[in-house]
Amino acid sequence: MAEKQLMAHAVGEQMNLMALLKNVNVRVAKNGKQYLDLTFEDQSGEITGKFWDASAADIERFKAGRVVHLTGKREMYQGSPQVKINALRLANADEPQDPSEFVVHAPMKASEMEDELNQVVFEITNQVWNRIVRFLIAKHRDAFFTYPAAKHNHHAFEGGLAFHTLSILRLAHSVVKQYPTINAPLLYAGAILHDLGKVIELSGPVSTQYTVEGNLLGHISIVDGEIVSACNELKFDVHNENVVLLRHMILAHHGLMEYGSPVRPRLLEAEVLHQLDELDASIRMMTNAVENTTPGEFGERLFAMDGRSFYRPNAPETGSTSSQDDQK
């Protein structure tokens, strides 16, 4: 019988399973004793838990990236799921120990995502933007198709960066079809590069952490620097308007300065990219929360969505026939 995964457990249900320690933080409780603030992960998702009264040996033993055997009970705390830990130990020699077996993956293979992305690159008919995009994707190819798009929140899984990028490109195609005055090649080029800096900002798909450059510079500044570096390699004038427009797409894509963008969008295409980025990230976060919620209840509170929780209706699943239709 297959072992039940983390997010398959209902509130109040006992857990007895193998999981990956995705994140481990040493904290100090009000009583002065140290404890471990843990995030467990498997291919169903992730859940947090606290290991109280952690000894020096526990702190040395339970490191991020290690596979453990967890015994505990799923609970809810302040609107978020967590596990009350009863027992925790490292995996034995005869148990799974490969962290990659416990990482959530994108719903597409890397080769499939690369093929789809390459088709869009052909639509970037401006040669300056096309060559910069091709140069940077080739430079960071392996990381781009395997890294997550975030440590937490949206697309925080292996291949999430490329999958998030493709999602935005699909939305962009629909918007361009509806509004043909949009400069499609500029929008597509900006969409492909907007989060590319995360291959330097983040450590990778297993136990994802922010790197020193990620903490000190951030992915927006990083990818802007990558564009300038590409221009130097390709012998493009960084003051050329095409280069400036592309850099603006990247620098403005968070929309507001308080959200990390040094400038606000001042191009139609930059505003569209910002809105599509927000839309895709928000839908992914809400979908993940609702999928792990019992029908008829509200899910966990989402910090990135202003602390709101979202309701999962008891209504039939999408695509099924409603009772009203049955009465016709």
Rank of each mutant, 00 (worst) to 15 (best):
A138N: 15
P205S: 02
K139A: 05
V103T: 05
A57Q: 14
M305W: 08
H152G: 13
I200Q: 00
E278M: 15
L136D: 04
L169T: 07
L193D: 03
E233Q: 13
M1N: 10
Y210L: 06
P265A: 12
R308C: 00
L302Y: 03
F51Q: 11
A289C: 03
M1K: 11
H253Y: 10
A54W: 01
F310H: 04
Q324C: 11
L276Q: 02
V244C: 12
Q5R: 15
V83M: 02
N240S: 15
V199G: 05
L6P: 09
L216R: 00
G49T: 10
D42A: 10
A29Y: 13
D237L: 14
S55A: 09
N92E: 09
M7T: 06
L279M: 04
D280G: 14
K30R: 15
F135Q: 07
Q97H: 12
L234W: 08
I200A: 02
G296D: 00
R66I: 00
A191I: 05
D237E: 12
F51V: 08
N232H: 08
E116I: 14
R66W: 05
V120T: 11
D280K: 13
I137M: 05
H164F: 02
L193T: 02
V244Q: 15
L251K: 04
V176W: 08
P81I: 02
M15N: 07
Y259R: 15
V68K: 09
L70V: 08
Q34A: 12
I168K: 07
F298N: 02
P295G: 02
M15Y: 08
V26S: 12
E116S: 14
A304W: 03
E46S: 15
S207V: 03
F51L: 15
K30Q: 11
R89W: 07
T39D: 07
V103H: 06
P265M: 05
Y179T: 12
F51G: 01
I222Q: 01
E201K: 01
N118K: 09
N23C: 03
Y188Q: 04
K235E: 11
I222P: 01
S174G: 14
H69W: 05
L161R: 01
L267Q: 06
I137W: 05
F40L: 03
K50S: 10
P313D: 05
M15S: 09
L171G: 08
Q34W: 09
F236V: 08
E269C: 12
G12D: 04
V121C: 06
T211K: 01
S323N: 13
A106W: 09
K328I: 13
A56P: 10
G225R: 11
S80A: 14
V121L: 13
G260R: 11
A289D: 01
D280T: 13
L217G: 00
E241F: 13
K63L: 10
H69V: 09
H248I: 09
T211N: 06
A172I: 02
E101C: 03
E213L: 13
M15P: 00
V83S: 01
L171P: 10
W52K: 12
L246I: 13
Q5V: 12
S207F: 06
